[in-house]
């Protein structure tokens, strides 16, 4: 029996095999593709027949005038999204104060729904709202602003507005959804604490300040730290869609630059090198977050 059992357990491996192969093919093999950055890779020619160029493409990163601009854009978007991280917590606290259950439910459903709509649709909505013949300009005309048709304003083509406008779209899409986790955390707070505080004479705002906020800040920091490693990966589809000739120089983040160099200009090797640099910056941010977590909360996140 025991012998049969020990042989039989290899069936478990057999059942997992097809899926492990998929992981190898689609998740781990691409990492080996980093080697392209050391060669002058030309599509269609085997890698061993391509010229080995060593660190040429990594040195190029430091002389490329675009590198600094693209990293700057990436960090600005990342910085704004970090600044906005307390908003879902605030939203949850406010939503919890809506005591009419049906209203609360409806707000919750409709504020979370944009999170599940594709960026193409968001782009389509933005296009029909903000473009020159869009609804916003039409409404402005109703109120007598921009009566002259040649004077319409399209925020999507305003390069100065890119950073905050794109961040606003992101916030619009994710705020309600990101609040849900805090909403759950609030319901998990012991009601006794509030009752005790009230006996001690604390008003509503004192309760929020001394009970709700500290209880949520734990969740807040955990989520913040977890998100930092992923910060540079977000927004690719969004920026890709909203990029246009007017905004290109400000909206181009590292991912978009990789796409432009690698797939549009077919300069695969340099594209891979930029991708590796992005990975290095991500790791750096994660390490910093980890150190910060250790100092603030006394434990590492990873």
């Amino acid at each position: 029996m025991a012998k049969r059992k020990s042989f039989y357990r290899y069936r478990l491996l057999l059942m997992a095999l097809p899926f492990m192969v998929l992981i190898l093919l689609f998740n781990y093999m691409p990492v080996f593709g980093w080697i392209y950055s050391l060669y002058d890779y030309i599509p269609g020619i085997a890698l061993k027949d391509c010229d080995f160029v060593g660190l040429k493409y990594f040195r190029m990163l430091f002389t490329d005038v675009n590198t600094f601009r693209v990293i700057k854009n990436t960090l600005i978007f990342a910085g704004i999204s970090i600044i906005l991280t307390p908003l879902p917590m605030l939203f949850a606290i406010l939503l919890n104060e809506i005591k009419l259950r049906p209203v609360q439910k409806i707000i919750q459903i409709f504020s979370t729904i944009p999170n599940f709509i594709s960026w193409i649709i968001v782009y389509s909505l933005a296009f029909s709202l903000f473009s020159h013949d869009g609804l916003v300009n039409a409404v402005l005309q109703v109120f007598g602003v921009n009566v002259d048709a040649g004077n319409t304003y399209n925020i999507m083509g305003d390069s100065n507005a890119v950073y905050w406008f794109q961040s606003f779209l992101q916030l619009w899409k994710t705020l309600g959804w990101n609040a849900i986790i805090y909403l759950a955390a609030i319901t998990g707070i012991d009601q006794e604490l509030y009752n005790a505080a009230k006996v001690d004479g604390a008003g509503y705002f004192k309760c929020a300040l001394h009970i709700t906020f500290p209880a949520l800040s734990e969740t807040y920091f955990v989520l913040l730290m977890l998100n930092i490693g992923n910060l540079l990966n977000t927004g690719f589809e969004q920026y890709f869609l909203f990029k246009n000739p007017q905004t290109a120089s400000n909206i181009e983040v590292l991912d978009l630059y990789v796409y432009r160099i690698g797939l549009e200009s077919q300069d695969y090797s340099y594209g891979v090198a930029i991708g590796i640099m992005k990975f290095a910056i991500s790791v750096l941010l994660l390490t910093l977050a980890n150190k910060a977590a250790k100092r603030i909360r006394g434990e590492y996140i990873i």
Partner: peptide, 19 residues
């Protein structure tokens, strides 16, 4: 571990495309 690690490791756009 190999499965969990896929959430953090990503070869990037170009290597994936070539593959």
């Amino acid at each position: 571990r190999a499965v969990v690690l896929t959430m953090y490791i990503n070869g990037g756009l170009i290597p994936t495309f070539i593959l």
